[in-house]
Nucleic acid binder design. Sequence first.
DNA 1: GAAATTTTGAGGTACGTAAATCAGAAATTG
DNA 2: CAATTTCTGATTTACGTACCTCAAAATTTC
Lengths: 340, 340
Amino acid sequence: MRPTVHDIAAEAGVSLATVDRVLNARPGVRQKTVAKVEAAVERLGYVRDVTAANLAKKRIYPLVFILPEGPNSFMRGLEAEIRAAMLRSPAERTSIRIETVPPFDAKAIVCILDLLDPAEVTGVALVATDTPDVTAAVDRLVERGVHVATLVSDLPGSRRIHYCGIDNLAAGRTAGGLIGRFRGGRAGKVLVVAGSMKLSDHMDRASGFAEVLGAEFPELEIVGPVETNDDADAVRQAVTAALEADAGITAIYSLGAGTRGLIEALAGHVSRKLTVVAHEVTDHSRQALADGLFDAVINQDCGHEVRSAIRVLKARSDGLMPISAQERIRIDIFLRDNLP
Amino acid sequence: MRPTVHDIAAEAGVSLATVDRVLNARPGVRQKTVAKVEAAVERLGYVRDVTAANLAKKRIYPLVFILPEGPNSFMRGLEAEIRAAMLRSPAERTSIRIETVPPFDAKAIVCILDLLDPAEVTGVALVATDTPDVTAAVDRLVERGVHVATLVSDLPGSRRIHYCGIDNLAAGRTAGGLIGRFRGGRAGKVLVVAGSMKLSDHMDRASGFAEVLGAEFPELEIVGPVETNDDADAVRQAVTAALEADAGITAIYSLGAGTRGLIEALAGHVSRKLTVVAHEVTDHSRQALADGLFDAVINQDCGHEVRSAIRVLKARSDGLMPISAQERIRIDIFLRDNLP
DNA sequence: GAAATTTTGAGGTACGTAAATCAGAAATTG
DNA sequence: CAATTTCTGATTTACGTACCTCAAAATTTC
């Protein structure tokens, strides 16, 4: 049987009340006595029963998710997963609020972060552009005692406790490896379509992609990246223009959103037999895979990301470390043959 | 606030004791009263607080994992994950026992299953060959009230409550899609190396692979599958023999274990520039990817599988349904570019 | 060394559920 | 209608922890 507070009290030769004071960092215990209790905890290998503690505390974890509004299918899928998690709130002792902000609007994010009350929120998960003001706002919030996790796109220099998303450098490299192998050594140009280089995930994907093409597939030349702000119409126009301007383009790597626009542009050039790799499984990309318009789609499981964010934020609020392997978000590769 | 048993008692106009009798299916309650309580539960949307219940019950979940012994790296990785889960046992209220059996030894599995005492075990997760005697033993165990989950390889006709593993038909299709695209339309033969057709996962992979090649890549002809019982030496001999016998082989799909043998065989034929897809990331396959000997490795995250098995078996013991999306094991595709 | 302060002990209640006892009420049986 | 049997209520203890109060002990301060 695992030891309880009673065992600690007996082992340390103090009363239950003192053990409680030490374990919960309450004042009024001499340093010498604190050491005795801590030694007993160490000796017996005591670990607080979090479920019993939560029951006694009637603890709930108030969490806030911040993500962009708008038609972006991936973000809406993410939101759906958050809503699914909200349905499990009673069982998981969470209380989740969703805040949406205009896409690429750093000021709006900063504003929300600064208005959060640490007394009312224990953790925040946010999808953010990697700009200095957002990083600063995150750091201010962490300073005020709120745990912050980044979602989908990281803020590398910030004090966030965890990043819930895929390794985007590896994702870009994967795309490079796939396109390179699919082209089978034939020379040509690859159009790279991105949303915004202010998003660290897009930056990383572009870097990883360029790295692999440079190292393993020198016969492929990169065109771009063109920035579209993840807007489908902008993507359609940019891709159409590029394809018409340059007959040497034989492949496309779309590392951002606006997949609908990409599909519309491709529909006008079916004869080109382009190798296409895009990101995120949505209704559109799924159909494009099935139709043979896309060769592969790189995906991140947003359900996993949301559940991971909740686990990590809860664990940190309890002062625990999460299972790191469980929190690693995998890079999923879908071909038409393994669509779920 | 979510309703408690007290609220149910008040709402139904009965005592706490009666609510308890109904909720825990204890005898001595008239059908009419049961209905009253159930109606109150329905009206208030009561859900039992599992953590409080477990605390009161001092509940632990005794689980048994059955897996093959021997040098198979994947199985040893699986065992390592089970041992990692055992370290979390105190917090997760599990008590896990590992039983190992000789590989492909159906009788040994049957023997262990039949000797399990339902009073001492609530759930079993096993890696098994798909043979009628194992299926029958699983059904007997389920009949005796033990929850059974299959791990890695399924027992399709059995009464197991859950299969913790990838969709192997889709995995085979994925391998087909990858090899087909990597070959870029060039005709040739693909050697398929399997462990045993008595394993449903190997069967499914072979079927999926053949399906995609037949439908999408008719220029590729399948040789095999050759069966090696997942023995590395047998794999080496089989692959070496096939490569020497047939100069038309341009690709290999290794859908079972014994990857070391495959690598040794390939080392003697580096000039052939074969397209190779294998299963499971291990030290060997990781090195082969890095060396460019393998083009892709299809993987299943055994940590996820173990955690999923534990969650499912626990949930079923509590009469709950797990989050199905969380329990779907993804097919991971690794290129040298996205190795973790 | 008395007074003030800090530290500690003892005991209780609570969280939501499980599980038990025992007395009393209701229904069924003869 | 009495004697059973079946059902129900009231109450208690327990799980492991949190948090509270009050008194007693130990320590520090003057």
